[in-house]
Amino acid sequence: MIRIQNLEKTYTTGAVITPVLRGITLDIKKGEYVAIMGKSGAGKSTLLYQMGLLDKPTTGSVMLDDVNTHDLGEGERTVFRLNHLGYVFQDYALVPELTALENVAIPLLMLGQSEKEAYAQALKMLEKIGLGHRMNNLPNQLSGGEQQRVSVARAVCHHPKILFADEPTANLDSASSALVLDVFDALHAEGQTIVMVTHEKEYAERAQRTIVIDDGIVKE
C-alpha cells in the first residue's frame, strides 16, 4: 500500500541546510494500523507529510497504491489526496464557517456527489461516531474531542485507502483521546489502513506496529 525508498527531506533557510529525513525506507501493508513515534523534531510529522502528499521529498520515492507519486503535479496530487487519502490534523482543522455536517460533506461534494447525497452520507458517518445530534453545530460550538471526531469523520467519510493522522490526540484530554482512538480501532477493524503519528507510547500500543523515528532515520 505504501512503499517508501531512500526518502530524504532537507530544509534550506538561507545558507543553513537542515536535513530532517535521512534516507528512510519502509513498507506499510493494506489494512495495517501503524504508529509513528519519536521525539520532538525527530522528523515523524515530516515523514507523514511526504507519505500524505502534502509535501515533496528532496530525494527518494513514495509509492502509494502502486502509484509513483514523484511524477504527480500539484493538481494531480490534490486529486489523489481527494480520491485516496484522508487526514486528521493535530488541531482538528475544521473550516470554521461550516457546520459539523458541512465539514464532513465537503470532500464528498468535491467527489461529485449532490448536496443531498453528500449530506446523507456525512450524517451517517457523524451518527457512527456518536455526533449525529451535533450536525448543525459550528466548530466553535463543539468541544475539542467532538471537533477531532468530526475531523475523523471528514477524513474517512469518502472511504480513503489510507488515513493519515498527525498527533490526533495532542490537544485532547485522556477521555476525548480515548474516544478518538476508539474510532480508529473501529475503522481498523473494518480494514482501514491507518498511519498515525504520536508521541504517546500508550496510544501507539493500540496500533499493530510502531515505527520509531530518531534524527531522521527509522530506529525500529
Binding site: 502534502l54 490534490t78 486529486v79 489526496r81 481527494l82 482543522a93 473550516v95 470554521p96 468535491m110 471528514r154
Partner: peptide, 14 residues
C-alpha cells in the same frame, strides 16, 4: 490561509 491550506490538503481544488 491555514483553512485554505487544509481545504487543499483534503483535496478541495484551488
Amino acid at each position: 490561509r491555514k483553512y485554505i491550506g487544509i481545504l487543499k490538503g483534503i483535496g478541495i481544488s484551488g
